[in-house]
Computed example of a mutant assay.
Amino acid sequence: MRIIRYVNDKGIPQLGAVTESQQIYDLPYKDILEVVEIAKLHHMTPSALVEEVINDSLPLEKSLEELRLLVPIEAQEVWAAGVTYEKSRDERNYESTGGQSDGPTFYDKVYDAERPEIFFKSTKERTVGPEQDVYLRSDSTWQIPEPELGLVVNGSGDILGYTVGNDMSSRDIEGENPLYLPQAKVWRHSCSIGPAIRLAETVADPYQIQIICRIYRGETLVFEDSANTNQLKRKFDELVRYLVKDNVVFDGTVLLTGTCIVPPNDFTLQDGDRIEIEIPGIGTLNNPVKSQVNEKLVK
Rank of each mutant, 00 (worst) to 15 (best):
I277F: 07
L255C: 06
I209D: 00
R214P: 04
R214D: 15
V248S: 08
E276I: 03
A204E: 15
R217W: 09
T259C: 03
R217C: 12
Y180C: 08
V203Y: 03
P195L: 11
E224R: 10
V240R: 03
V289T: 13
D246C: 06
S190M: 04
L255E: 09
Q210A: 09
V293Y: 12
I277Q: 07
E174Y: 08
L239A: 00
N228G: 12
S291L: 05
H189S: 12
T220C: 04
I212D: 11
K245L: 15
Y207P: 07
N286G: 00
F236E: 02
L269G: 08
Q210V: 09
D273N: 07
R234L: 12
T259Y: 03
T202W: 00
T220W: 03
S190W: 01
P182F: 07
L256V: 14
Y242C: 02
S226T: 15
Q210N: 07
Q292E: 14
S192D: 04
E276S: 11
G218L: 11
P263N: 03
N177T: 12
P195S: 08
P288V: 12
G258R: 11
P264Y: 08
T253Y: 04
T229N: 10
D273T: 12
S190Y: 01
R274Q: 13
Y207K: 05
G283Y: 12
C191H: 01
F236M: 09
P288E: 03
V222Y: 00
R214T: 13
L179G: 09
P288K: 06
P182I: 11
N247P: 03
V240G: 05
T259I: 03
F250K: 15
V186P: 02
W187D: 01
A204H: 12
F236H: 14
E224H: 11
A227W: 02
D273W: 08
T253I: 07
A204N: 13
I277G: 08
A204R: 15
N228L: 04
R234P: 06
G272Q: 08
R188D: 13
C260F: 06
T220H: 11
T257V: 13
P280L: 11
E174G: 01
T229C: 12
R214W: 05
G258N: 10
R214A: 11
P280W: 07
S291H: 03
A184P: 02
V222P: 03
L179P: 00
F236A: 01
I211V: 15
V248A: 06
T259Q: 00
Y207D: 08
E176F: 04
P182E: 11
P195A: 12
Q208E: 15
P264E: 09
T284E: 07
D205V: 09
P263E: 01
R188F: 05
N286A: 05
T257N: 13
L285R: 07
N265V: 06
D246I: 10
Q292M: 15
G272D: 10
N230L: 09
L232H: 09
